[in-house]
Design a protein around this nucleic acid. Structure first.
Length: 929
RNA sequence: GGGCCGUUAGCUCAGCUGGUUAGAGCGCAUGCUUGAUAAGCAUGAGGUCCCUGGUUCGAUCCCAGGACGGCCCA
């Protein structure tokens, strides 16, 4: 009669399921963390430790969170949790950017309103707020669904009264330092709607425009200056002898902008040439001369060449007006079309404006809101600008300044609402000066103290600061924080006074910024306030709002340095677009007000592209929102993905990539399950300390410690991917060697057998250390596993009460032994058809091998290799191989029906099919129960 | 068009300061196991290290140019 000995074994038992069902279980875990106050409790426990602050750059609250958000948010969360597990007071305050044009436009679209002037500002603001709050709540919920920890009860939001107060208070600080001024700026303007437009509000359409080549002549004096730069006696002789008109040639498709001209831009490195074309001399880019001069090129004589940079600062005459234009340099000068000399009207182009600012050129914009020339345009006053094109071309021809006039069909910006062509028009705006108080220099100095990941980020940031134009912070819109500026009704002077701004900051803190639209302006004026220009005492509140980059750029002032949070933050983590965005705006406000960087370490994460490496796109079917991805794969699989890729670089995301990570996830999960299943019956008072373990268990213990330490070190280096590799290495190595070898002692020995208790103790140690190590990334799974451990073995309610295992010793000897055993295990499997306990192994050791394996007894090695018998032969004849050799032969004895090892059977007539050891265990079991 | 970055097995990635039979996990193929079982163990096949030149005794690693891709700007 065959007995079923399976029931007499200690097989793994655990509630922790093999199938994760993450999409269902994770939301419950989020609720549980919330109820348990898991994050808050760990913070309280760490309260006396040093604060460690990762400051959140606020996502923009419109639309669903996408995988780029997911990556950034999970990377941040992992860092916060690492700090938390290391015992630091890692308070994370999530934030949201909630003002701004995109929300305003979406709201207007929803309301079916085309002109925002048609709606009362307070009404529009109320609608915008509803919309922003809707997306805030949605994003917050999805962010919590990711398993992120943070003080969500005190999230910061740029629309909160306290935050608005900080924005305005910061304006007061800047006004006090004389950092802010009002000046002209070129903005996109729709003539039909009579409004400024944002970049997002234009569409490119084809349009027919004039295409004209225009002379900007050098007068006598200007010619002398030119010849000094071009140099060479032959040049001057040639020009003097011929006494021909010399001019620089420009090309434009917008003749109407010529009245606004202030300069001619050249490219620094381009070669420009003077050509004698018979009756005149023209200056233009050498590479473009043939196509610009056409038939006149063949007869032209090249007199001299010069690099663009040599001509910087020279002047030429305006072709129509009695004034000069300055020769400047600009990077954007196109060397494919035109003449390489670009007519520059700072009032009529974004580039032109920046160039104009850089060179201090006059900003002329003699065009009113409806697109008619003003008196400043002289003879063209009153004409509609596009109608004036023909007259201007005609005047150029009459003045002999037109080289050639044609028409072209080209792509031109149009208003997305009325589809009329738009123009650039200079309007009055508020600026933060980069030069006053040496702000640019201070900002550059501040980043020297900042660490960057990757390293080249500092250089990138430096360039962004160096190229930072004057920062235009005003917008003529409604959904934002007002700039508390006022206009004198007597002389029209515009004033941003620190005292007024402070009054606004106080008022907004209580009532929110809406009151700026409803309060009488007198409420904000200090006693006896009078216009510094004219002494007037009557004022009107201005209606400009502040750039949202400024709003998010003061988050460090709104969040840090209060409520126990230190200033500056220890780390910020954002996508690479933020070098120009939030990294920069935060730095600028901090440099202006604190003369220091607002962060110690800037970490950039890459872009999330699709599996082909192209940007994700809904229309291509590769776009997927974070919540959809979590419903499909679970947050933990996606969190593991975030660690499996090199998040600093651009990464790829898609079903195939995730399926691969999901398989790794299942491996990890099953190995955790194996550990859980085998430690369930271990009483806490039977846990064996490391010092009392045998050599094989000690090896596994130390091996685990090493891997845990490496994982912790990878986290220290912000290298989630390295941590991922070590996590995978640990679980797969432990499984292949230790788990596999321990199955026999764990299953077949008596439950209380010291050998089994020792193995269980190692598994418990490995499990605890492993769960702590993976918790920053696989937060849900780590917590789920922790909850599956018997209470007595936990000692804490949450996995986030644990500490990362670190080991300062970092001894290398056990590592070598591990490799040797792995090699032997593989050799046994490979060398014969005999499997596991069917085999008897003979180890052939050189004396060196033997001493390397010295701590192990033959029984230890038999156990490690999972064979039925093991013999050891030591001889210097085996010395050549790097690894010891193994010879496998059939095991002696018969297969024990219980433990499957080959043993002498039949000693006990009652249990003829099982070995003596098993007989003892079974008898003991029967008498015990 | 400019600035910055990237390009190693089907996929995700290691390869420290130039010299290794260029590695791992996943996938794939094959075998074993069926007492971790929608699991576990083992073996194996996969690579002109993007291309072209240069430096060097020697380059995946350094330099130059190019191709492809990304971000930001135009």
């Amino acid at each position: 009669m065959k007995r079923d000995y399976r029931k007499t074994l200690n097989l793994p038992v655990t509630e922790f399921p093999m199938q994760a069902g993450l999409a269902k279980s994770e939301p419950l875990r989020v609720a549980w963390w919330h109820e348990q106050r898991t994050y808050e409790r760990r913070l309280e426990r760490n309260a006396d430790a040093q604060p460690w602050i990762l400051h959140d750059g606020p996502p923009y609250a419109n639309g669903e969170l996408h995988m780029g958000h997911f990556l950034t948010m999970v990377v941040k969360d992992s860092f916060v949790k690492v700090a938390l597990l290391d015992g630091k007071w890692a308070k994370f305050v999530p934030g949201w950017d909630m003002h701004g044009l995109p929300i305003e436009l979406e709201t207007l679209r929803h309301l079916g309103i085309t002109d925002f002037h048609e709606i009362d500002p307070l009404e529009l603001r109320a609608r915008c707020k509803e919309r922003a709050v809707f997306w805030f709540e949605r994003q917050r919920d999805v962010r919590m669904r990711m398993g992120t920890f943070g003080d969500y009860a005190h999230s910061y939001r740029t629309i909160d009264p306290s935050y608005e107060s900080v924005i305005v208070g910061t304006l007061a600080d800047l006004a006090e330092r004389d950092q802010i001024y009002k000046g002209l700026r070129a903005t996109l303007w729709c003539l039909h709607d009579e409004t400024a437009l944002a970049e997002a509000e234009i569409e490119y359409e084809m349009r027919r425009s004039p295409s004209i080549y225009v002379r900007f002549p050098f007068d006598e004096k200007q010619l002398q200056a030119l010849l000094e730069r071009v140099g060479g006696p032959s040049t001057s002789l040639r020009l003097a002898r011929d006494d021909k008109e010399v001019s620089i040639l420009i090309w434009t498709t917008t003749p109407w902008t010529l009245p606004g001209n202030s300069g001619v831009a050249l490219h620094r490195n381009a070669i420009y040439a003077l050509y004698d074309v018979g009756d005149e001399v023209v200056l233009l880019a050498e590479d473009l001369a043939a196509q610009a001069l056409r038939e006149r090129y063949s007869g032209a004589t090249k007199i001299a060449t010069v690099r663009g940079e040599s001509l910087e600062g020279l002047e030429v005459r305006h072709p129509l007006f009695d004034r000069n234009a300055t020769i400047v340099l600009a990077d954007y000068v196109d060397l494919e079309t035109g003449t390489g000399a670009v007519h520059t009207a700072p009032g009529h182009g974004a580039d032109d404006f920046e160039t104009g600012m850089a060179y201090g050129l006059p900003v002329r914009s003699p065009v009113d809101a409806t697109g008619h020339f003003t008196a400043e345009a002289g003879p063209y006053a009153g004409l509609q600008i596009f109608d004036a094109n023909a007259k201007i071309v005609d005047d150029l021809r009459k003045a002999g300044m037109l080289l050639r006039g044609e028409e072209i069909e080209h792509s031109y910006p149009h208003c997305w609402r009325c589809h009329n062509p738009v123009i650039f028009r200079a309007t009055s705006q508020w600026f933060i000066s980069m030069e006053r108080n040496d702000l640019r220099a201070h900002a550059l100095a501040a980043i020297d103290a900042v660490a960057y990941t990757p390293e080249w980020g500092r250089e990138r940031q430096r360039q962004m600061i160096e190229n930072h134009p004057e920062w235009c912070i005003s917008r003529q819109r409604t959904w934002g924080t007002p700039i508390p500026a006022i206009t004198c009704t007597a002389c029209n002077a515009s004033v941003l006074d620190a005292r007024v701004a402070r009054a606004a900051a106080r008022r907004f803190a209580e009532a929110g910024a809406d009151v700026w639209w409803s309060d009488p302006v007198e409420r904000y004026l200090p006693e006896g306030f009078a216009c510094t220009a004219c002494g007037g005492t009557r004022f009107e509140a201005e209606r400009d709002i502040v750039d949202i980059w400024f709003e998010s750029g003061v988050s460090h002032l709104a969040v840090l340095g209060r409520n126990g949070l230190p200033w500056p933050s220890d780390r910020v983590v954002e996508g690479s677009d933020q070098y120009r965005g939030w990294f920069r705006s935060s730095l600028m406000t901090a440099a202006a007000i604190r003369d220091a960087a607002p962060y110690r370490h800037v970490v950039k994460n890459g872009w999330v592209n699709d599996e082909a490496g192209r940007p994700m796109s809904k229309s291509r079917g590769t776009g997927i929102d974070a919540h959809e991805a979590m419903d499909r794969w679970g947050a933990d699989v996606l969190r593991l993905w975030a660690a499996s890729v090199e998040f600093v670089d651009d990464v790829r995301f898609g079903p195939h990539v995730i399926e691969q990570v999901a398989r790794v996830y299942r491996n990890i999960r099953n190995r955790v399950r194996f550990m859980l299943g085998n430690v369930g019956d271990l009483p806490s008072n039977a846990i064996v300390a490391r010092e009392a373990l045998g050599p094989l268990d000690t090896l596994a213990y130390d091996y685990a410690t090493r891997r845990f330490d490496e994982i912790a070190q990878a986290y220290d280096a912000l290298d989630l991917h390295a941590a991922y590799l070590k996590i995978v290495e640990f679980e797969s190595e432990m499984s292949a060697l230790y788990f596999d070898a321990m199955k026999d002692p764990l299953y077949s020995r008596a439950a209380r057998d010291p050998r089994r208790r020792a193995a269980q103790s190692v598994l418990l140690y490995a499990l605890r250390g492993f769960l702590a190590a993976i918790a920053p990334v696989l937060s849900f799974t780590a917590e789920e596993a922790w909850q599956s451990l018997p209470e007595a073995l936990r000692g804490s309610s949450s996995v986030f009460e644990l500490s990362l295992v670190r080991n300062e010793a970092r001894d290398g000897v056990s590592e070598e032994r591990w490799r040797t055993l792995r090699h032997l295990r593989a050799a046994v499997s490979a060398s014969s058809e005999l499997r596991d306990f069917e085999a008897k192994a003979q180890l052939q050791l050189s004396p060196a091998h033997a001493s390397a394996l010295e701590p192990f007894s033959a029984e230890d090695l038999r156990e490690a290799l999972a064979v039925s018998q093991l013999e050891i032969a030591i001889s210097s004849a085996f010395g050549n191989a790097r690894m010891p050799q193994v010879v496998v032969s059939p095991a002696e004895g018969e297969k024990c029906a219980r433990c499957w090892k080959y043993r002498e059977l039949g000693a006990d007539p009652e249990y003829p099919e099982i070995c003596a050891e098993c007989t003892r265990v079974v008898r003991e079991r029967l008498s015990g129960d």
